[in-house]
């Protein structure tokens, strides 16, 4: 039953994340955090963090991580398989029938609206990650976030990282390693965290 749920959940994530890169993030958050409570928001932020520093697409990384958590190795394999199953069916059908996919008016039209929508969905998931990492207790709900509960070290890390990325376009891995290292020192010095 659990395996079936895992499969179905990640099948939907695979089927509805269109546009590559971060497009799967909002769907993973919805299925894994909000719907099934397999991960807390804190765990989810950690999975995204780990995904940035390990090879492979975020969706596959999340599938393996959640699968391991819920049902060990069989869970990881089932969730990963669920995640790639829609790709296999759709991409291979296109290859098999050799569809002139690019020129289909319907596909083009759908993508015209999907591209900007995906930007907003990523923005929304990114905002909940931001709010969760700026809260002092790494709580699950950012609604409870008040000024005295704000983690100022995280605010400084976020703003510095953002400015560095905008200005110099460096590899994101270095920003994350940097904020991890600087964060550790800052938290130990301020006795926070």
């Amino acid at each position: 039953m659990t395996l079936l749920k895992l499969f179905w959940s990640f099948f939907q994530i695979g089927l509805f994340s269109i546009g590559g890169g971060y497009a799967s993030m909002p769907l993973i958050q919805e299925q894994v955090v909000e719907l099934h409570h397999w991960l807390s928001m804190t765990d989810f932020v950690d999975v995204v963090t780990i995904s940035q520093m390990t090879p492979g697409p975020i969706a596959i990384n999340a599938a393996t991580f959640v699968g391991m958590r819920i049902a060990q190795l069989p869970g990881a394999i089932v969730a990963t398989f669920g995640c790639v199953a829609p790709s296999c069916i759709i991409v291979l059908a296109i290859g098999y029938f050799y569809l002139k996919y690019k020129n289909l008016l319907v596909v083009d039209g759908a993508l015209t609206a999907l591209r900007p929508a995906v930007v907003s969905m990523i923005a929304s998931a990114g905002l909940s990650i931001l709010l969760s990492s700026l809260a002092q207790n790494r709580t699950d709900s950012w609604l409870a976030l008040r000024l005295q509960h704000i983690d100022w070290v995280a605010v400084v890390l976020f703003l510095t990282g953002f400015l560095i990325l905008r200005k110099w376009k460096i590899n994101p891995i270095f920003v994350m390693l940097g904020s991890g290292g600087v964060g550790l020192v800052a938290y130990l010095l301020t006795g926070g965290g």
């Binding site: 971060y22 993030m25 932020v45 950690d46 995204v48 963090t49 940035q52 990523i122 998931a125 990114g126 990650i129 931001l130 969760s132 990492s133 700026l134 790494r138 983690d151 070290v153 995280a154 605010v155 890390l157 976020f158 703003l159 510095t160 990282g161 953002f162 990325l165 905008r166 994101p172 920003v175 994350m176 390693l177 940097g178 904020s179 991890g180 290292g181 600087v182 964060g183 550790l184 800052a186 938290y187 965290g193």
Partner: peptide
């Protein structure tokens, strides 16, 4: 926790 803030910056970018 520090890396979480970094990830938020990467996504914001």
């Amino acid at each position: 926790k520090g890396m979480g803030a970094g990830v938020a910056a990467v996504i914001a970018d």
